[in-house]
């Protein structure tokens, strides 16, 4: 028995060593990419990082916390407007926009948490969406943000694109790290318990409200920071695009395609989504249509997404979220 355990442990050690090496190689490739890959690849990678980051957050809520939100565009839109106002209206630097966006996201998330955390299940889903729509109508009628005219974010043209690339890379990595950290902590265990059986978890003393709220706040902040970067990339903002459900639509696509409730899912999903949108770019109008059809087919045949399928088939688990009982020596 003892031998068996130690060989098991040795196996898992080599496995994690291999994972580490692979991760390091990928990271090095991503770091040198701007110098070898050219502007087009750099731009695609930026999009992948950012979409992956926001999808990680949607997945944290929908896949792990059971909070299916259709209102994440509220945070992206707010972040975009913070960027536009700080840099265009007040001529302040970009980094300030990131900080302000994060702060405003937390405050806004805290405020809306009061009503929406009273709503359960599908009511939560609807409530979040209504909030985002209300923001849209409000901004479209608000003189301070120039009504529906919006802003061109000119500072985006003057920034160093390589720096921007690294910033997005960091945002992407941080989003993964945040989710990993949460899931490996005690909170993560509570989350799993909660997702599996809310009532039972509550009885067992899991502080549901605080756990949910914490995840919601974290998701809001990361989404807002990624939102600033997304609008630096887009370089203009209007209420229609800022608070568009399209943002959340893409998050849902990415998470479903990749696999809901897995960390790998949003990564795979984001790569597929961004590449597919690029390929379908030339068939304007068809791209969302085809993505929609793909999503429906995937839910029908592989409801757990690509990652869920691989996990079931080959017991893939890159990040090791699942807790293994440590063998006693």
């Amino acid at each position: 028995m003892k031998n068996n355990h130690s060989s098991l442990r040795a196996q898992s050690k080599t496995a994690s060593l291999i994972k580490l090496i692979v991760a390091a190689v990928i990271l090095i490739v991503l770091i040198v990419m701007p110098f070898v890959g050219g502007a087009y690849i750099r731009n695609i990678l930026i999009l992948i990082f950012l979409y992956m980051a926001v999808s990680q957050m949607w997945n944290l809520l929908a896949g792990y916390t059971g909070l299916v939100s259709l209102g994440m565009q509220a945070f992206i839109g707010l972040a975009g407007y913070v960027l536009a106002l700080t840099t265009q209206q007040y001529g302040k630097p970009i980094w300030l926009a990131f900080i302000l966006a994060a702060v405003i996201a937390v405050v806004f998330a805290l405020i809306i948490s009061l009503p929406i955390f009273k709503m359960k299940g599908v009511y939560f889903t609807i409530g979040t969406w209504i909030i985002a729509e209300a923001l849209y109508v409000f901004f479209a009628n608000w003189a301070f943000v120039k009504y529906s005219i919006g802003y061109n974010i000119t500072v985006a043209y003057r920034m160093n694109l390589n720096t921007f690339y690294y910033l997005c890379l960091v945002i992407g990595i941080v989003s993964i790290a945040v989710v990993l950290f949460i899931l490996r902590s005690k909170t993560g265990l509570a989350l799993m318990a909660m997702r599996d059986n809310e009532d039972a978890a509550e009885v067992r003393g899991v502080r549901l409200y605080r756990t949910k709220l914490m995840c919601f706040l974290i998701a809001s902040v990361v989404t807002a920071i990624a939102g600033v970067a997304l609008y630096l990339n887009l370089a203009y903002i209007r209420p229609t695009n800022a608070f568009s459900i399209e943002w959340t639509v893409s998050m849902v696509f990415i998470v479903i395609i990749g696999g809901i409730g897995t960390i790998e899912g949003p990564i795979i999903g984001a790569i597929i989504y961004v590449l597919l949108s690029q390929i379908l770019y030339n068939f304007a109008g068809y791209s969302n249509l085809i993505l929609g059809i793909i999503a429906v087919i995937l839910i029908m045949v592989a409801p757990k997404g690509i990652m869920g399928y691989l996990e079931e088939r080959f017991a893939w688990d890159i990040f090791g979220i699942r807790r293994r009982i440590k063998p006693k020596s």
Binding site: V68, V252, G285, N288, L289, G292, A295
Partner: peptide, 18 residues
């Protein structure tokens, strides 16, 4: 609840774009 919800979501996108 989620798979059915997401199917209607996907169909929704398809209809709108069509």
């Amino acid at each position: 609840p989620n798979p059915a919800l997401l199917v209607t979501f996907g169909v929704s996108i398809v209809i709108q774009n069509a």
